[in-house]
Design a protein around this nucleic acid. Structure first.
Length: 303
DNA sequence: TAGGCCATCTGGTCCT
DNA sequence: AGGACCAGATGGCCTA
């Protein structure tokens, strides 16, 4: 049906997104997200030849598939000739085929972006605006840095517990996290780094399988925000019944909060144009809802 | 209404 | 040669 299926990547370094998100795309959420984009597959200036092909194919199937099939067929025929020798309709078919590929590529990119959004610790739900692409990327970067810091901190603590040397103590996470403001030395640090640790429940599995696991139905309304006193238990497991990193983000009680206390050092700051800051700040406010932190410390603290 | 975000088209370049 | 990748242009939609 879909000629795009035959237009798979030819690069070994480009894993087919269908493979990665196979199960997810069978669900409704992704499909809806992807199909929400407008498909202008029927330009007004279609050649009569193409319209005929489309009409014939459309009789047997859906319009988009028919269109793509016709375009692919024509393009395949046209491809045998030199571009300079191709007729106008043939060039048009080729152009349509290329456009279709590019659309698919961008759709795949958006699917990956949605997958990234799903594992990001921010409020999900129909009433919450989706993170923009740039905000998603910046948050993801920060999140990774945060997890990295947490991992190092845990390594340090473990070495302390087992009588190891106190190497690079306080070198990581010099913020208020730790013994200072979070009640206990361990509180305030997120669970979820993909490295299995004997003292912690393995989260590697959930992190990796969450990507390809079956996507849950459309996200439920945002989970009740968890406040600091209860949300920073380091060793807490995900709440029962929640799908770890799949579907709507289950708001792990141990998830890192994006508040300024838990943010990475300022070295992680990046360059964001002033014009973008207002929008990013707006997006950031969504993140802060999880923490019940209404004061926005400034975008620099988040991104 | 301006600005931001996004999808799409398009031509060029790079890679396999 | 074909396809992936990239960036610029364009137009639509939405929000402050």
């Amino acid at each position: 049906m879909d000629s795009d299926a035959s237009l798979g990547s030819s690069r070994a370094s480009s894993p087919e997104v269908d493979d990665i998100f196979l199960h997810s795309r069978k669900g409704g959420a992704f499909s809806a997200a992807v199909s929400s984009s407008t498909m202008s597959d029927s330009p007004a200036e279609l050649s009569a030849e193409l319209r005929n092909a489309m009409a014939m194919a459309a009789a047997a199937g859906d319009k988009l598939g028919a269109f793509k099939a016709a375009a692919a067929a024509a393009a395949a025929a046209a491809a045998k000739k030199d571009k300079k020798q191709m007729s106008e309709p043939e060039l048009q078919q080729l152009r349509l085929k290329i456009n279709s590929r590019e659309r698919k590529r961008m759709h795949d990119l958006n699917i990956a972006m949605d997958g990234l959004r799903e594992v990001m610790p921010y409020a999900h739900g129909p009433s919450v605006r989706k993170l923009s692409k740039i905000a998603t990327l910046l948050l993801a970067r920060n999140y990774i840095l945060m997890l990295t810091n947490s991992l190092e901190e845990m390594k340090r603590l473990v070495s302390e517990i087992y009588g190891g040397h106190h190497h690079h103590a306080a070198a990581y996470h010099p913020s208020a996290c730790g013994a200072m403001t979070h009640g206990s030395p361990l509180s305030g640090h997120p669970v979820g780094h993909p490295v299995h640790h004997p003292l912690l429940p393995s989260t590697a599995a959930t992190l990796t399988t969450g990507i390809s696991s079956v996507r849950a139905p459309p996200p439920p309304p945002p989970a009740p925000p968890t406040s600091h006193p209860t949300s920073h238990g380091l060793l807490k497991s995900p709440s029962p019944g929640s799908a770890p990193l799949g579907g709507a983000f289950p708001h792990w009680s141990g998830m890192p909060c994006p508040c300024s206390m838990c943010q990475v050092p300022s070295a992680a700051h990046h360059h964001v144009s002033g014009a973008s800051l207002s929008r990013l700040s707006a997006d950031t406010n969504v993140l802060l809802q999880d923490c019940e932190l209404k004061e926005v410390p400034g975008v620099e603290d988040i991104f």
